[in-house]
Amino acid sequence: MVAEMTLRETARRRGVLVLLLVLPLAFYLARRGDHLGQSIRFVCLGLSWALATAALFVGSAARSLEPRLRLSGYRTHQLFLGRLLALWALGVALSAPYFVLILVDQQNVRYAAIAVIMLLGVLVAPLFGLAVSALLPRDLEGMLVLLMVVGLQMILDPAGSASRFLPFWYSREIGTYAIDHTSADYFDRGLLHGAVTAVLLLAVVAVAFGIRLRRRPHVRIVGGLS
């Protein structure tokens, strides 16, 4: 029910949906002229940024409703997993056209690896956006954090150790494997990074939601909802 209502809310923000769809395209076209491979890296990053932003706003919009939902009987994990389910579905719908675009527009790249980048983006980006919204109550602060992370992701040398602490580093690593046909080590490292990032972010989301929506210890409910 939470996932369905999140999808309904998101579907009604038509302007936001259009921007979500167009933003990765802008990233793609920005480098298509001079470096086809780079345009793939950028579109994957653009998709992740768009999904993280969508998650940030979904999380912020639900903030005032969630205490009431909690009181109505929902468990905390039902609330954040419901939001995530909706965002993951949105992510698949958003990424699919771009995968088709790459299939049609790009040659001599490892398509399966690109699909893995996109799937990891669908998994990780909503978790990142929701984690930011759970930790930072105001949209502006959250947006600045997202901007900072994506900016750093573009600026930092992916071979450097600092960049590995960024949530979308896997995208650059698997991208190198897919575009430059490097060894499978790149793919393995990227896959491991994406999986670990997803698990860590899920833990952050669970803890942040759990703290914010916790039943305060001074309250004892007898015969009601926990």
Binding site: L65, V219, G223
Partner: peptide, 22 residues
Amino acid sequence: GRVELHGTVGYCPQAGGTADFL
């Protein structure tokens, strides 16, 4: 202090508590 609630609870906030797009 402490609070005991016997049964289910309905809460109506002074503001907010609804979803804009629903």
